[in-house]
Design a protein around this nucleic acid. Structure first.
Lengths: 212, 212
DNA sequence: TTCTTCGTGATACGACCGTATCATGATATT
DNA sequence: AATATCATGATACGGTCGTATCACGAAGAA
């Protein structure tokens, strides 16, 4: 066969371009031509690898979640080998906060896709529906294990707290995005709740007992 | 003067049409012609009252926040005259949840505008920036007063909890919107935290004692 | 009445968008 | 070397969008 270019890699390059330009100008504002220009290829090429814009957007969403998963994994590894449950949870939540350019793009685009999926049923049927459930389950498991090993308050409702932490992180991420809240204050709120959750009853002299 | 039509009312009618069609098909998908058709008027009329689409969108945002404020007010009044702080807070939070068609539209469009404002600086300069702060301040005040009157745990950090409650409500609202969570479970999570906050110290049979 | 101004309508314009078509290099197989 | 097939490019097409233009009816002011 001819030229043999790795199609999947090409698609990834184009998807990266989509993510870059969408992160800059907003997902609603990107066109095929913008993506092509950002990727440094011709419009035809974008059409060649993704026949339709819808498919490009779907692939972009997939690529986005993949990259986000990789980001979280990297943050977890950076937290050291076998960190405590609290440090793990903190790394998890903080990785979701738009405190750097990459996080900003992730949060903006993920939010955009979510809102879009409300009125676009084709998008609503796409993969990223199960992702939040996975995060919720993972976090719940971490909390339960922390409780079992006596690090976290046994009185708390693990799943409810997991849902709450993720929900707070998401909204405060948006607040950071629109410039309404500083990353520091968002982190402070999260730590406040982690302090509450990771507090064995008797050791609570002041506040922060079982720190990471 | 000629025909004498109340311009402001006309604008409101058109803004209502914008909100309806945007709530149905998504804010990104509405055009001037859609709004005109939904309002039962000609395209020219929409142009006449709002010279540009940008102005129409800005006015629509203003109208949206006005109507949302009215909704919250109505819910508060429906909660009875001088309800307790907890009932007030609950009414406030539940009014923000997309549990009915109106709430669904509010949440969807408010989220859409927020996301849009991240990449649209003209929109970012618009009014609705201060609204979240107002809600946060109001909620903080309610919590502090509840603490002062011995109804709420004096150990909690009022503002931090206010921020948390609003943040959780917002994200769970979106979760409801995309069909990922039921309104009941969202309400259960909120009530869980209200139970924690509105718990006088000695009644805590299990864990949450004199927290920081 | 005549005029001026406001309100409303029908329609046209230029730009851009997603998609399709046609053409042409490049290469691995025969 | 010939050829079939993959990869890439230039360009055209139909539709829709926001906006502008032209036209006309209606009503207080002169």
């Amino acid at each position: 066969m001819p030229k043999r270019v790795d199609h999947e890699e090409r698609r990834n390059q184009i998807a990266e371009a989509l993510i870059r330009v969408a992160g800059r100008r907003g997902l609603h504002a990107v066109g095929m031509r913008d993506v092509a220009a950002e990727a440094g290829v011709s419009l035809r090429l974008v059409q060649y690898y993704f026949e339709t814009k819808e498919k490009l957007l779907f692939y972009g969403l997939q690529h986005l979640t993949d990259r986000f998963t990789a980001r979280v994994g990297a943050r977890l590894r950076a937290a050291g080998t076998d960190p405590g449950p609290r440090a793990t949870i903190e790394a998890l939540l903080l990785a979701s906060l738009p405190t750097d350019e990459e996080g900003r793009t992730f949060h903006l685009l993920y939010s955009s896709y979510s809102i879009l999926s409300v009125t676009d049923e084709a998008l609503a049927a796409q993969p990223f529906i199960d992702n939040p459930d996975a995060a919720e389950n993972a976090l719940t498991g971490l909390l339960e294990r922390a409780q079992a090993s006596g690090l976290a308050d046994p009185g708390i409702a693990a799943r409810t707290e997991a849902i709450s932490l993720l929900a707070m992180t998401a909204t405060m991420g948006t607040s950071i995005l629109v410039g309404q809240r500083s990353p520091e204050s968002a982190i402070a709120v999260l730590r406040h709740h982690l302090d509450r959750i990771f507090s064995t009853t008797e050791t609570s002299a002041n506040g922060a007992a079982g720190r990471l």
